[in-house]
Amino acid sequence: MALAGLGLLLFLLPLASLVVRAPWGQVGQELLAPETATALGLSIFCSVTATAIALVLGIPLAFVLSRTAGTLRRVLRALTTLPMVLPPVVGGVALLLAFGRRGLLGGPLYQLFGVQIPFTTTAAVIAETFVAMPFLVIAIEGGLRALDQRYEEAARALGASSWKVFARVTLPLLRPAIFSGAVLCWARALGEFGATITFAGNLPGRTQTVPLAVYIALESKPEGAIVLSLVLVAVSLAILIGLRDRWLGEP
């Protein structure tokens, strides 16, 4: 009992401190401060873009995963889930080695086209996609595996082409899984820190997203850090409440 209480306290105390120490009188003012507003806007842009990319790439990937078996499936699964367990800073280093000016892909890109990815908004989006897409893939793959294949068989028996089966039967039946996968993915992208600061740097207006801004502001302007932290807490809570039937409800 006591240990459980201690455990709960570990969660509660920091959150409560945030609320207690928040400069409530100047929340509006802090949120509208130019650097804060810039970080918020950039965060929303990057996380939404990352989620969109994850949807476009992740849904087909989830399909491939759900339709393979055996060793291939284990390998593919390990590859897609790796970013979930990898320390984000390691992901950032790996991204630098791939897309950096001397990277495997970044090198030729820079030499042939003069394109430079690191320390740009593009890099921030790539870092967020890298870290967050697995959440989407896993959720959708789970949805696909749980899907009764006979719906697709019935559609085919009615003469539907593969595309029609996908668009009119599979995708709509998968909507709940896609939705929760996208929300999870977006939340993870919004909170991304390690890979972003390593691969994209910390340039206000270009790569400084809210988590980075919080970290920087903590030294110079603690009130701003607290307000931005509260914004992230509020978003997390909103997501938990929005998806409560899926996670917080009775099994």
């Binding site: 719906y151 068989e153 019935a154 028996a157």
Partner: peptide, 15 residues
């Protein structure tokens, strides 16, 4: 999908 056979499933499988 190219056979034009009608298959009615045991528990109907309506979409």
């Amino acid at each position: 999908e190219e056979r034009q056979v009608g298959l009615v499933f045991q528990d109907h499988v309506l979409f």
